[in-house]
Design a protein around this nucleic acid. Structure first.
Lengths: 215, 215, 215, 215
DNA sequence: GATGAATGAGGGTTCATTCAT
DNA sequence: TATGAATGAACCCTCATTCAT
């Protein structure tokens, strides 16, 4: 029991470290993040981070992998329950949207990582990414084979899914700079209030689905 | 003419500084960039950067604003020569693609900036952005009014334009990590070789255009 | 005791930093002081200074306040044991002389601070100064009330106390430049060998004390 | 004529440089002064300072020597017109007070130089100082020989003259920090409004003059 | 498991000075 | 006479990391 209590306590530290790290990496990126600040916001001593997790790079890996691995598993399991390619594509988009919603700081990290061309990405995270991305590839191929989708390159479609999702997460920050453009503000607010995922789904399916009259 | 030669020579340093800075900010981001490295790659003394331009932040602003202002002007002028909303949307996409092509390091910087929610963005750059974005908004509204476009929120469409463009620019870096997924490599290479802009245009127009039978 | 030993050891670094800093600020002033040099002379790493104390300004404040606060307390306590205003004035002068003697680098710092009009002086040090100065004011007023002192403005008397004390501390440096003036050298050496504090006391008391025949 | 005009113009630059330099050295000392700032306040290009005067050290020397040489000449000439030692001492004090009044930034520079033990003092300025100081020495000796002064060491008396004068010049800066000590403020203002030089003279003469009844 | 102290290696910025014009 | 441009050398400060306890 004593052991358990200690373990609980340990996990508590780790949880707090990871929480603070996720926030900060999202806010300022890997290079901009300060281990001191992560320690401060965690409420733990800086050395404790090194004790439990390792150096800054390891901490970063841990933060991202935790989310990506989870997202990959969820998509895989949910897609299995869908039937048509159309359903599966919707599931794909929905699950990514859901994960980004659950982990509100991850979109920024992902975005930044793409911007860096995977500089900091450790192999384990690249594997996560390839796994997820591979599922989209399969969905599109199946749709194409079955004659319900036009041919679409997944490297074009994927950023069209995550682009608006991530963009949407960052709109709040941009909003404050739009005061002189009320017309745009209105559109922005219309988007924020309603579900973005559905909008993206509908929009992309219009482009992906083969239209009746040949096309 | 002598005066002009002098002037040219005078701004040579500035040009080299901005060139090196653009590259490096793209490669490693604002926080990751080292002023020392920018000086080294410019071939000028570090203090010369401060003499001509100012501190790191000012240098960053300058680099981005130079490109954005140019992109904004080009789009505005070219759109004026287009007739139908459909043409205008194509022009919009094409001009962004062209600018990103001319300044191969900017996509990463833009991407990162969205990731930061405009943290480093000075007002002058936000204004550039709002101007460009405003043009898309008008195109979509005009198309909607004329009954040729379905209603689309520009905050969804815009990232669908730049997302794949930027993603595409960064694929080279990801490519090296895809050795275990030959299927995906093939798709990727298919995309790299052909024009992406056209693919994006065609794809998005399928979704935007009102289909004959009502829709 | 173990704890105490640890504590002692802990503050060893701080003590060395403050010692070196006091010396160097005295030698070359705030602007002339180099944090690197303070670290070198302390035998600690430069970063240790920032860890324990803070930036250069904070270090300066700490150095001065430590001495001034101590001087203020000593004067207050010793004056309490004196009876006549004359005794108290002597005590005042003596205690300042003693403190400057104990902290041989402070006179220069004080002098420089007056020269800067308190530019670098943080409020906490100004308060120390006002406290000390206030004691002189009271002494003079009491003497005046009791009819043993003529009216003297403390803002004139105070610099007459510290002026020669500080000047005296700096004579060593001037000495080397007086080789062409042997007459002056003799006077100077006469002063250095004997107690200055007494000389100042006697001299100033001659001026302050009311002379028998009215005056 | 052309030459003259040019010369006038040159002198103008030099005058402005020296003026700005004097102010700035007084405000922040030698180490704290910035050549850039001196150029800015002079309204001349930085390189012009080097062209006309030389490096920072030379500029400092020039600023101080200009004043000290002048002060030395004035005292020497005026003392020659005084008769008694008492008169001469008054003249000495008055002339120093006058010079400090004419050059309101010099007191701070002098003060700082004493604090540095003459670190930056070039020989030419030390000679100025020795000359001035020598005159005081002679006055005191003459007074002693003639039986009108008690024996006083000039190294004690001199700082008692300049101490209050310089202190007085800096009171304005201290004043703002005395708001909680109204009693002291009153004394301070009493001093500022009236002539300090006379107060110092009267006070010091009380101490220096031999009193009738032996003493 | 946890931490206060310490530090080597830079990081951004400033500054006195020089030089071509 | 005057100056814009350029720079080497520091300078203050920060940061990721380690270690004794």
């Amino acid at each position: 029991m004593g052991t358990k209590a200690i373990k609980e306590k340990k996990s508590e530290s780790i949880r707090r470290i990871l929480g603070a790290a996720t926030e900060i990496f999202a806010e300022v990126g890997f290079a901009g993040a300060r281990v001191d600040e992560i320690a401060r916001r965690s409420g733990v001593n800086k050395a404790t981070i090194y004790y439990h997790i390792g150096d800054k790079k390891a901490l970063y890996t841990r933060v991202i992998h935790d989310v990506f691995a989870d997202m990959g598993k969820r998509i895989a399991s949910n897609i299995g329950q869908s039937q048509s390619p159309e359903e599966k594509l919707k599931t794909y988009i929905h699950n990514i949207a859901f994960t980004l919603d659950q982990h509100p700081h991850i979109p920024q990290i992902m975005l930044r990582e793409f911007a860096l061309g995977g500089h900091h990405f450790p192999d384990v995270v690249t594997e996560d990414f390839v796994r997820i991305f591979g599922m989209l590839t399969e969905i599109l191929e199946e749709g194409s084979r079955k004659g319900v989708f036009v041919d679409v390159n997944p490297f074009i479609l994927h950023p069209m899914v995550i682009g608006p999702l991530i963009f949407h997460k960052n709109l709040e920050a941009i909003r404050s700079k739009l005061s002189q453009a009320p017309e745009m503000l209105k559109k922005l607010d219309a988007l924020i209030s309603n579900g973005v995922a559905e909008k993206i789904e509908n929009f992309l399916l219009r482009a992906v689905k083969k239209q009746k009259n040949g096309d």
